[in-house]
Design a protein around this nucleic acid. Structure first.
Length: 298
RNA sequence: AGGGGUGUAGCUCCAAUUGGUAGAGCAACGGACUCCAAAUCCGUAGGUUGUGGGUUCGAGUCCCGCCACCCCUG
């Protein structure tokens, strides 16, 4: 099992094709937004030619109005791994969605989800929800960010559906393994470090997307973007533009800002994973390829 | 030229009790992360309040000059 992860605009896709070839692998994308059909330009989704060259998995799984949960991603992704291995080929995990990456390879255990309970819990005032969570588990603060309404709501949802309290769940062997970065599925992985040129590359990447028709794509998808899809970088910021409430130049600037902020979060998420070998971004693809191959022990 | 208005952090701001030595949102920077995760949250830094004087124990807040921009009249 091989993995190439890292921030957006790090040149992962172009590397992955060559690596897949080199290691006789199929590509498994860990990307929370490329699972939505039709979101192609804005997510820099691999195109037809790339998919002809190397089989890509976990792309175009649902319509944009739907929501594709991480738990579902985990289940399906693991099935993909089994299937590819059964074929006698390797799996190359590629992407930038940290939680999806860990859900796939680490023993993350997602308790159930109940839409009705979720809705009820989300409707609670944040301090009410927090109080109920603390009443059920006085030590919840050690495992859940009590300042984060979403985390509190999710923790409370799990408690209400009988999935256990945060303290109980944190004590399981699997939870310990997750904290210690002991994978369920062993892998060799690298994280691309975008370096100082990220701003420039992100700028160019956005320009390219605009030339390829990102605005038209957003306009077409606008009425169909669901709760999650509508938050994707590039779509969220361009929505006001296609609605005529913001000039394109301002929208494009917002996309750049959001892209860089996303890249920063991705860097911190992957950066603390001790299993990932950092690969500095260099302009020459062959050099990057060589560095990754070396990390993969080829 | 005359009359009026505005000038507070990179940006936005009818924040700043009766004058008591500056705040917020966003951006920036750092961090967290067991299913809204391209999401959400936490923390840090940043201003000689356009400028020069004056009044005052003390001025972003009052007075005068100057500068910049905006509006109106010629």
């Amino acid at each position: 099992m091989l993995a190439v992860v890292g921030p957006t605009a790090g040149g992962k896709s172009e590397l992955s094709l060559r690596l897949a070839d080199r290691f006789d692998a199929e590509i498994l994308s860990v990307d929370s937004m490329q699972v939505y059909r039709g979101m192609d330009v804005g997510t820099a989704k691999p195109g037809w030619e790339e998919r002809q060259q190397v089989p890509h998995h976990m792309l175009d799984l649902v319509e944009p109005e739907e929501e594709y949960s991480v738990a579902t991603f985990q289940r399906r992704g693991r099935a993909v791994i089994e299937a590819v291995h059964a074929r006698g080929r390797n799996v190359l995990v590629v992407g930038g969605s940290g939680l999806h990456f860990r859900a796939l390879l680490d023993p993350l255990e997602f308790p159930g989800h109940d839409p009705t309970v979720r809705r009820t819990v989300e409707a609670l005032e944040p301090d009410v929800a927090r109080a109920e969570l603390l009443a059920a588990d006085p030590g919840a603060g050690d495992h859940v960010d009590l300042e984060n309404p979403r985390r509190v709501a999710r923790a409370l949802e799990v408690v209400r559906i009988g999935g256990g309290t945060p303290s109980e769940r944190a004590g399981s062997p699997a939870a310990v393994a997750v904290r210690e970065y002991r994978p369920l599925i062993p892998f060799t992985g690298v994280v691309i470090d975008p370096g100082d040129g990220l701003g420039t590359r992100a700028r160019r990447r956005i320009d390219k997307m605009l030339k390829r028709g990102l605005v038209a794509e957003v306009e077409r998808l606008a009425p169909r973007l669901g709760r999650t899809a509508s938050q994707a970088v590039g779509y969220k910021e361009l929505l006001p533009v296609v609605e005529g409430r913001l000039p394109l130049s301002a929208g494009a600037a917002d996309v750049l800002t959001a892209t860089l902020a996303l890249a920063r979060r991705q860097r911190t998420f992957f950066g603390r994973d001790p299993r990932l070998h950092p690969i500095p971004w260099v302009s020459v693809v062959d050099q990057r390829l060589a560095a990754v191959e070396e990390a993969f022990g080829a």
